[in-house]
Amino acid sequence: MIARVALGDRSAFDALYDATSPKLHAVCLAVLKDRPEAEETLQDVYIKIWQNASRYASNGLSPMTWLITIARNRSIDKLRARKSRPTSDTADIAATVASSEPGPESAAIRAQERRLLDECLALLADQQAGAVRAVYLEGATYADLAEREGKPINTVRSWLRRSLLRLKDCVSQ
């Protein structure tokens, strides 16, 4: 694909972008620790790839190694430029740190999945639903559950297996 990009083939460039952008974005994000800046840097990386594809020489290195090197070097350049800028106060620093909180879309999806799981658990008998909650949501072991319920461990395993199959059917509907 890089050889075709060197000839100005836009469809090859699109295919190259589709195949490599997640990995190169991860490289930029790992160096910069700032999603917007990593996305901007990734754009610069692909401009550089478009302009310099003819310079790629297959000298034993994989094409992906060449692309990762471009992304890494461009990210390091951005990082150095960022560090050379004076910061006015800690509020500016806090604004550049990426949030670890889930975004609104993923939070909504997670809430919907939780609601669906709760509805499906409600369809199970109380004892089986409690067993599923204890083992898979609270971290109890099969042995703990068997002791708590006063049942043989194989009975508890059977409950859980049947319960999980019923949950799978419910969730897939």
Rank of each mutant, 00 (worst) to 15 (best):
R114A: 14
L29P: 01
A134E: 01
A53N: 02
E105M: 12
S54C: 08
A15N: 09
S172Y: 08
V45D: 00
L167W: 01
D169R: 14
V132M: 09
E37Q: 12
E40D: 15
L61T: 11
Q112A: 15
L61D: 07
D77F: 11
S172T: 13
E40K: 07
R35G: 09
E101A: 10
R4M: 12
R162I: 07
Y142S: 00
G8W: 01
E113M: 15
K168H: 15
W66Y: 06
E138Q: 14
P86M: 08
A95K: 12
A26D: 08
A30L: 07
L164Y: 08
Y56W: 09
V156R: 01
I109S: 11
A134H: 01
T20Q: 14
A38D: 05
T90H: 12
T65Q: 01
L117G: 01
R114E: 15
V135D: 00
T90K: 12
R72Q: 10
I49W: 00
L61N: 08
Y46C: 04
V132R: 03
A71Y: 01
V97G: 00
A19I: 09
T69E: 06
R85K: 14
W159S: 00
V45Q: 00
I76V: 13
L165V: 13
A129C: 03
S75Q: 00
S11N: 12
A131M: 05
I76K: 09
Q173S: 13
P104R: 14
D126M: 12
A122W: 04
A95S: 14
A6Q: 05
R72L: 06
T41P: 10
A12W: 04
K78W: 00
S106N: 07
S158N: 09
S11G: 07
V135M: 03
R162K: 15
P152K: 11
A26R: 10
Q127N: 11
Q173Y: 08
I153A: 06
R80M: 12
T96L: 15
R82S: 15
I68R: 09
Y142I: 07
D9C: 02
R162W: 09
C170I: 02
T69F: 02
A146W: 08
L121F: 02
